[in-house]
């Protein structure tokens, strides 16, 4: 579904991603871990099409199409979803209005009729149950004054509404309380199918008890320096990143 080959990206001339290779197949869950500042969010942003990151080398193929050629909104319409590490506030725009605009633009791109108000609201109701989100939250301005956990939960609610093919969850677990973590993970798991895939960026092994990954990758200094199965996450939890850093840093000297 997604093939990343030798991806390099920089900000203001500073290289941040320095040769990422990754293959994600339909039905899979990939976890990306790594120390602060290693480039995890950058990778997510580059995939989503954020323009301040300049791709200097490499390619990304998504369902047979050159992802890097597409405008951010077209990537979204093609089925790429990013749950933001820091969701943005949009004053005066309710989640409901926002999502309706988004969903109908996605549908239009796919040649589908727009959803009328009744159908849209019943879809909302259904998806609200999935992440146990309160109606009151959705009639408020998007993310404005939401608590950290509410913002994250709202991201997953949007994901549920838009039914993406590839979901990238950037530290969705941070800021969630224990119950919310379980609820949100349940939601993600229920949305999983053999037709879509998920990339979860996290610092904590605990999330991976709920959303069980097929692969775990360690990102360090803009490269994937180690890949393994979910056991790798347990090992990292126990030993930290130093041993990997040492391995990498001594190899590159």
């Amino acid at each position: 579904m997604l093939t990343i080959k030798n991806l390099h990206a920089s900000v203001d001339g500073t290289p941040i991603l320095r040769g990422i290779n990754l293959e994600v197949k339909a039905g899979e869950v990939h976890a990306i871990m790594g120390p602060n500042g290693s480039g995890k969010s950058t990778l997510a942003s580059v995939l989503a099409g954020r323009e301040e990151y300049e791709v200097t080398e490499g390619e990304v193929i998504f369902q047979g199409k050159d992802l890097l050629e597409m405008a951010p909104e077209d990537r979204a319409r093609e089925g790429v979803f990013l749950a933001f590490q820091y969701p943005v506030e949009i004053p005066g725009v309710s989640s409901t209005n926002f999502l309706r605009t988004a969903l109908n633009q996605v549908r239009e791109y796919r040649g589908q009729e727009p959803l009328d108000a009744v159908k849209f609201l019943s879809l909302m109701k259904e998806k609200m149950k999935l992440v146990e989100i309160d109606q009151k939250l959705l009639s408020r301005s998007l993310n404005e004054g939401f608590s950290g956990g509410e913002k994250k939960r709202n991201e997953i609610f949007q994901m549920a509404m838009l039914e993406p093919t590839l979901s990238i969850l950037d530290e969705t677990d941070s800021g969630l309380d224990i119950d919310a973590l379980r609820i949100v993970s349940n939601g993600v798991n229920q949305l999983k199918s053999d037709k879509n895939a998920t990339i979860v960026v996290t610092h904590y092994q605990r999330l991976l008890d709920y959303i069980v990954p097929d692969y775990v990758h360690v990102l360090y200094k803009g490269r994937i320096v180690k890949s393994g199965t979910k056991e790798l996450a347990l090992e990292l939890e126990e030993k930290g990143y130093d041993w990997i850093k040492e391995e990498v840093d001594s190899a590159t000297v």
């Binding site: 979204a76 990013l82 943005v88 926002f98």
Partner: peptide, 18 residues
């Protein structure tokens, strides 16, 4: 804000309007 809208499939013109 605009990128956030774009990422949900909303084009820039509509994002500004929103």
């Amino acid at each position: 804000q605009i990128f956030y809208c774009n990422q949900r499939g909303i084009d820039t013109e509509d994002a500004v309007a929103l």
